[in-house]
């Protein structure tokens, strides 16, 4: 459950960088995503067309505070987004570094505290750091969104052991892998590890065929989720014959 909302598709899709509004529209449908992320900017040239896509998609809107570098900017952006999109959901990003796009955990916690107290449902973009995660929960967040890898890098889960530890530490808290996913297999891997959802954008938008890739990601996320629910076999260090030895014929001449 994400702030009281259950999602049947656990893929959350970004809406930026698509070759055209028509491709974006098709990709959203093909992905099966029920949550799409959006932003807030000075009026661009196709603002009207984009508003129509949001309306027609039927998806729940998750506005972001992308590009904000201070808690103050992020809080103001979040309040503007709440009014404009009519939702208390906010993907809280407070960027610490323009080149690495690494979250600034101190400003993130500060902004999260203000927004949670103001009635927002905060989805904080964070690292796999356990203490930062605890501070965010104390601030009032009920979901955490650790990065897989730096935004737009397509590197997949760069610190698998750290993410595994985070999953175990925050059992029962919805965790969404946000950013850095490059391929459907990486998204499936995150879901197999027990993460609750995957949020991505560039891997679909910058694919040769974004609509096909959106479909592939939708299926991979569903497969990974199903595999986690089904329970993966334990890993073994040695071979173990799967065909029974009992009843084996003696065929040596």
């Amino acid at each position: 459950m994400f702030y009281g909302t259950d999602l049947s598709s656990r893929l959350m899709l970004g809406t930026a960088q698509y070759p055209s509004p028509a491709v974006l529209r098709e990709a959203i449908t093909a992905s099966g995503a029920e949550v799409i992320t959006v932003s807030l900017r000075r009026e661009g040239k196709d603002g009207g067309a984009f508003r129509d896509i949001l309306k027609d998609s039927g998806c729940r809107i998750l506005p972001n505070t992308a590009g904000c570098h201070t808690a103050g900017e992020a809080v103001t952006t979040a309040r503007m987004a709440r009014e404009l999109f009519g939702t208390s959901w906010i993907k809280l990003e407070v960027i610490g570094h323009a080149d690495t796009l690494q979250p600034d955990p101190f400003a993130l916690v500060e902004a999260a505290r203000i927004l949670c107290a103001d009635g927002f449902d905060v989805f904080p973009y964070t690292t796999e750091d356990l203490i930062v995660g605890e501070r965010l929960l104390e601030a009032g967040c009920k979901v955490l969104m650790p990065w897989g890898a730096p935004i737009g890098s397509g590197q997949g889960l760069r610190n698998i052991e750290g993410l595994r530890a985070m999953r175990a530490h925050f059992s029962g808290i919805p965790l969404v892998i946000d950013a850095g996913i490059g391929s459907p297999s990486q998204a499936a891997q995150a879901m197999e590890m027990g993460f609750d959802a995957v949020l991505l954008n560039t891997a679909v938008a910058k694919a040769l065929d974004p609509v096909q890739m959106a479909r592939a990601f939708g299926q991979a996320v569903a497969a990974g989720q199903m595999a986690y629910t089904a329970g993966l076999m334990p890993r073994r260090d040695m071979a173990h014959a799967s065909t029974p030895v009992f009843g084996m014929a003696e065929l040596l001449p």
Partner: peptide, 10 residues
């Protein structure tokens, strides 16, 4: 003054 509108985002 900032006047902002919905825009594509990730």
């Amino acid at each position: 003054v900032e006047i902002l509108t919905p825009m594509q985002g990730g």
